[in-house]
Design a protein around this nucleic acid. Structure first.
Lengths: 223, 223
DNA sequence: TCAAAAGTGTTAACTTTACACCCATGG
DNA sequence: CCATGGGTGTAAAGTTAACACTTTTGA
């Protein structure tokens, strides 16, 4: 039994040097055949976060991902059938090649597909607005939440980390300054391992020390 | 005709060197006689922001105040009668002595009263959680939204401004450093006026140049 | 041996922090 | 003339920004 409100998910991954968002092609009116953020009604006896997890699983096959609430939208005209309140979330997944193939298992959508966040097709409802808000928030939260790390595998190189920062901030950064700053924070653990399978000099791998990260940023506000 | 969701408002003002929140004493079950954030069901044909404005007006007699959405709460157990989704907002008002007297005009509450934000009575529902989240958000947003200025009259002294910053950040700041920094930003207009009615040297008055403020902070993110 | 990306240091500009006294005013 | 808060500068420490070349590796 469905409640009267929905959740919509901005599911983000990082692939080929780009930030990507998972969109679903709708198979239902209104906006049939349009691309939209994955979302659906929350069940009556279901916690909102569990609905987000369910939608995430239905669309990507993934569980246990980082998520955070974004904003709620309840405009009287946002849905042609009358006001439907939606609570927007974002979720960050570790996209590798094995996870690129999506397999939507519901019948209210035809397919799901990853798009570069700054090059999406026209979206249903107010979903473009939701996506834009999400990107703006990520830029701010990047400074005090482990957002970049949730988009990367457990072990990563500094170049990969820099590319994620650049993708979210939508600008290029200086390599030396970036590495110096990251290493000075003290929450990166340098591993005794290097990349494998590359045709050039293999880069050192690092891990996030989440305890130190959170400690570092828990009280970071202006002044 | 009411919709099935509510808005709850963290209404904040600044008075006597302290950040204060307006609380309402409930006159209805559940939580009859408890203090709570002002809030109510949104009407079916009413925009959510208009509901917030309505509640604000009912509780304070004020219109045209700064407000912003905070977060939505939809826990299955947050309301004893079953899940009721609420969208929490905060609103910032310019509290002067003429506005301190509150006059709730609804019958679902007995009275409204201003409390220091860090010394509130036990609150109904999950309202303490909402208030705490609000204070945390304000600390972050203070750095890039004109929050402090919305709590002050149009013309204010630098000491008043510093007190607001201190109230929100919940710590004391160095007077010289604060003034230097604020004046360097360049968004304060120094007026040719000074305070009146004080028994000591009158302080210079300033105004916010909102255009310059927004320009200054529109692109402020880490790196 | 070449192509590709890894890795590395210094300097100048700017920002932040710490700190204490004299001044102007009204009562 | 005194109590109260208004107003002001400097130096040291820390952070950010700009900038280019050598090294390692696998194919």
């Amino acid at each position: 039994m469905y409640s009267n409100f929905t959740v919509d998910c901005v599911i983000l991954g990082f692939h080929e040097g780009e930030l990507k968002v998972l969109l679903a092609e709708r198979n239902e009116y209104p906006f049939k055949d349009w691309w939209a953020l994955p979302g659906f009604f929350v069940d009556n006896d279901e916690e909102m976060e569990d609905a987000v997890k369910r939608i995430l699983y239905e669309n990507t096959g993934l569980k246990d991902v980082f998520m955070d609430q974004l904003h709620s939208f309840a405009g009287l005209k946002r849905h042609p059938k009358g006001r439907i309140l939606t609570v927007a979330y974002y979720a960050l997944v570790q996209l590798d090649n094995t996870k690129l193939k999506t397999k939507p298992v519901t019948n209210y959508m035809k397919q799901a597909k990853w798009f570069p966040v700054r090059n999406v097709p026209e979206l249903a409802f107010d979903h473009k607005q939701i996506l834009d808000l999400c990107l703006e928030r990520l830029q701010r939260r990047l400074a005090y939440k482990p957002i970049a790390f949730e988009l990367l595998p457990e072990k990563f190189t500094l170049t990969q980390l820099q590319l994620v920062y650049e993708g979210i901030l939508n600008k290029t950064l200086d390599k030396r300054n970036f590495r110096k700053k990251m290493q000075n924070y003290g929450f990166l653990k340098e591993l005794d391992e290097v990349q494998t399978g590359v045709a050039y000099r293999a880069a050192r791998l690092y891990k996030l020390d989440k305890r130190k990260f959170l400690k570092h940023f828990q009280n970071t506000v202006a002044f």
